[in-house]
């Protein structure tokens, strides 16, 4: 007789920051495979932070740029246990630089934005509407909501990546989601915007 399945344990894409420290130390010694594993763990967090600021078109290319910047500047990281928030800060700075470059007078130094995502359809349009609504909320809600709803990261994973307390992330997710629901209900009543 087949044993009943009690639980399915899935590997988490971003583990607690202290779990990353041995990989960071190995990467500092030039271990490229270790850095690739850090990439696999943190690609969602970095993409989410870029996505929250740049939108879908530019985030994909910028992810690679951020990780390469992290790789070349790894020697400047003081505490290996803080690698995730350190890399996320690089991502934020990269997004700011990219946005500046969109201005006509801004100087150009590196790569341009990525090509647009596939042609919009109803689902894509719905996703952009949610993204617009997230961006209309106060700034502190943007990153936690994008990391949770787009990248499917859990609360503890978000807290580790953003270097925030569990309590702060929980509050930002809960209040942010409630405001997001309200915002969507105001812009276009429907399944997404239904009042909670």
């Amino acid at each position: 007789m087949q044993e009943p399945i009690l639980a399915v344990i899935q590997p988490s894409p971003t583990q607690h920051e202290s779990d990353l420290a041995p990989l960071v130390i190995a990467a500092r010694r030039g271990d490229r495979a270790a850095f690739s594993r850090l990439h696999a763990r943190l690609v969602g967090a970095v993409h989410g932070i870029l996505f929250a600021r740049l939108g879908p078109s530019d985030a994909d290319d910028a992810v690679q740029e951020v990780f390469l910047a992290g790789w070349t500047r790894l020697a400047t990281l003081r505490d290996p246990a803080k690698f995730a928030p350190w890399l996320c800060e690089i991502a934020r700075n990269h997004a700011v630089t990219t946005l500046r470059r969109h201005k006509p007078a801004a100087p150009l130094e590196t790569d341009p934005p990525a090509p647009a995502r596939p042609a919009p359809d109803e689902v894509h349009d719905q996703a952009l509407r949610i993204l617009d609504a997230i961006r209309s909320l106060p700034l502190p809600y943007h990153e936690p909501l994008v990391l949770r709803l787009v990248e499917r990261m859990s609360g503890p994973q978000i807290a580790a990546a953003l270097d925030m307390t569990h309590g702060s992330v929980r509050v930002n997710l809960t209040r942010g989601f409630a405001l997001l629901t309200q915002q969507l209900a105001r812009s276009a009543p429907g399944p997404l915007g239904a009042q909670p």
Partner: peptide, 12 residues
């Protein structure tokens, strides 16, 4: 309901 449409925009 929000996760589903946003899934396509997650990190490649």
């Amino acid at each position: 309901a929000m996760e589903q449409p946003l899934a396509a925009l997650a990190a490649p």
